[in-house]
Structures are given as C-alpha cells and as structure tokens.
Amino acid sequence: MSSTTEQAGIGVELKRWRRIRRLSQLDLAALADTTQRHVSFIESGRSRPGRPIVIRLSEALGLSLRERNDLLTAAGYLPAFTESSLDEEALRPVRTALDEILRGHLPYPALVLAPYGRVVTANEAVEVFTEGAAPELLTPPVNLLRLMLHPDGMARRVGNLGEWGRHVVENLRARARRSPDPGLDGFVAELAAYLPRVPAGPGHLGFSVPLRLASADGELRLITLLTSFATATDVTLAELHLEAFLPADEETAERLRLRAARRRSEGAVWRPLPERLS
C-alpha cells in the first residue's frame, strides 16, 4: 500500500467515524489528547499519523476491537488485536467457562451469541424456543433473532409480539446507527417486516417489557440478561455475549423446572442448535 493510499484511507475513515459519532474535530482532538490541527491534517491527508495516535483516536471514537483494527489497517499498520477461533487451544478456558455458565443457568434458557444473533452454543432449556419451529430455522448457523420473530418460528407463540419485537428491532437499529453495516440494515428490515404494526400506547413499557411466550406447559413470562466480555482483547471474544433468560414470575419458574424434570425423566437427548463450543 502506498503512502498516499494509506493517508487517504485513514483520512476518509477518520472523518466518516467522526461524523457517525457526531463529533467536531475539536471534540475528537480533546478526547484523543491531540490538537484540532492534527486531526484536520490527518483527515485531509496532509499528515500521516503514527500508530499511537491512531489507537488513541479509535479509543476516543468508542470503536469496537474489529473497527479499531480496521482503522489501523487504513493507516497502513498491522492490527493491534488478535482474532482467534473458538476451536483454538488458547481459548479452551473460555469455552469451559461458558459451558459451565450455561449449565449453571438451568433450568432457564441461555445462549452464547455472536454478532446479530448468530447462535454459538446454548443449554438444553432453549428447546422452549424451538418448540414447533420450522426445520429451516433450526439449520446451523441458527440466528436467534430470526427464530424468535419469524412467523414460522417462535413468533406465533409470542403473546406480545408487536411490543416485544419492537424492543428487539430497536436494539438492532441502535447498533446499526453506532456501527453502520449494510448487511445489518437489511437484517433489521427483514425482522421489522415480520412484526405487526402496533402503536406505542400510554401503557407502553419500552425495554422493560417481558417476553410472553405460549408453551405446552402454559404461558411463560421471561426477562433477558445480557453479559459480555468487558475487558476482552481478542476480537472474537469481544463480539460474543451471553443472553440469559430469567423467569419474570414464580409461575414461569415452576413451569421451566417442570420442563427440565420431564426432560430428565424421559431421558431426552439434547441436540444443540449449532455445533457446541466443546
């Protein structure tokens, strides 16, 4: 890559991210402990930034590890953060810990998700989500969000699909605004098309609304807990999160306990949605 291309690349990318974050050059300079003049020169291609300032700028912009690597590459530098496969020996302790967390969350459903809802692994309690779903929605790689909102998936059993589904879609839209991605825009449009048009009335609860899911054992009311690797320095780990579902009332807790007991008594064999971590 030529010096000119490198300078043009970092300048264009820096300006793009600054505008996405709605920061002036002066705002970004203050956050990155540099000068407005330096930021201006980088964006215009008049200055080739050193690796440390590119890293500071990416931190000031609040970029993900993948996005920070991309900004470094645009400046002509090697990525700072590794991107490992979950199959690698170095991540065995992580795989073991995640499997322990999933087992420990039983009898309640929990999954490990990659970006945009792709299921990496799950515990056996997620069978409550796959009940009656079309086989094509359960073919790896399974996407949890599509499974939940698709009319041939879980959607027909969701008692508050319009309100709860809007919460799912709006979360994705917020992510798309923060990290623009044409692929994500298309996915958001797909999911939104599955939802009924329900205006937000005076009783609208926003993000606190629980999922109301019909099941063979009666209605389940579930709330969601999201957990991520806050200090990860590996792109793969930084992009994973744990989505754990908790009962919103004692009736739901009891029904999930009964389902778990029934699986054990029937000797049901758990066949995970995707290939497991271990």
Rank of each mutant, 00 (worst) to 15 (best):
V128L: 10
Y194M: 13
G165D: 03
V126M: 11
F245K: 04
E127Q: 09
D234T: 11
A193F: 06
A155G: 04
L144I: 11
V168N: 00
T252C: 08
H241L: 13
W164T: 04
E254S: 10
E251V: 15
V142N: 01
V142L: 04
T139W: 02
E243W: 05
R177A: 11
L145I: 11
G165A: 05
L145M: 12
T130D: 01
L138F: 06
A192N: 06
P140V: 06
V142F: 01
F129L: 11
V142P: 00
E251T: 15
E190T: 05
F187P: 00
L191A: 02
N171L: 14
R166S: 13
V168H: 00
A176Q: 12
P247Q: 05
R177P: 00
G206I: 10
E219Q: 13
F245A: 06
S208D: 15
F229T: 09
G183T: 11
R157G: 05
S215N: 03
G162A: 10
F245N: 03
P141T: 14
L213P: 01
L149I: 07
L211G: 02
N171D: 15
L220I: 05
E219L: 14
L256Y: 01
V198P: 04
L137I: 10
L225H: 11
G162P: 05
R197Q: 15
L213I: 13
L147N: 01
R197V: 15
G186C: 07
P141F: 07
L211C: 07
F129T: 01
A134E: 12
V158Y: 05
W164K: 01
A230H: 12
V188G: 01
P141A: 12
V209C: 04
A134L: 10
R197C: 08
F229I: 12
T139C: 06
F207C: 12
E170G: 02
V209I: 15
P202H: 11
E243R: 05
R177F: 00
P140I: 11
M154E: 07
R177C: 02
D217I: 14
P196Q: 03
S215V: 07
L220P: 00
A248H: 04
A230R: 14
G218Y: 11
L226V: 15
R156K: 14
T233R: 13
G183L: 10
L225K: 10
L213R: 03
E127M: 07
T224C: 08
A232S: 12
G218A: 13
D185Q: 13
V209M: 09
A253E: 06
A244H: 02
R156A: 14
G203F: 07
P202E: 15
L242W: 03
V235W: 07
L222R: 05
A189N: 07
N171S: 14
A174M: 09
P180K: 09
R173G: 02
E239A: 12
R177H: 04
A253I: 04
N160C: 08
F245W: 10
P247C: 03
L144K: 03
N171E: 14
E190P: 00
E136F: 12
T139L: 12
W164G: 00
A214R: 13
L191C: 03
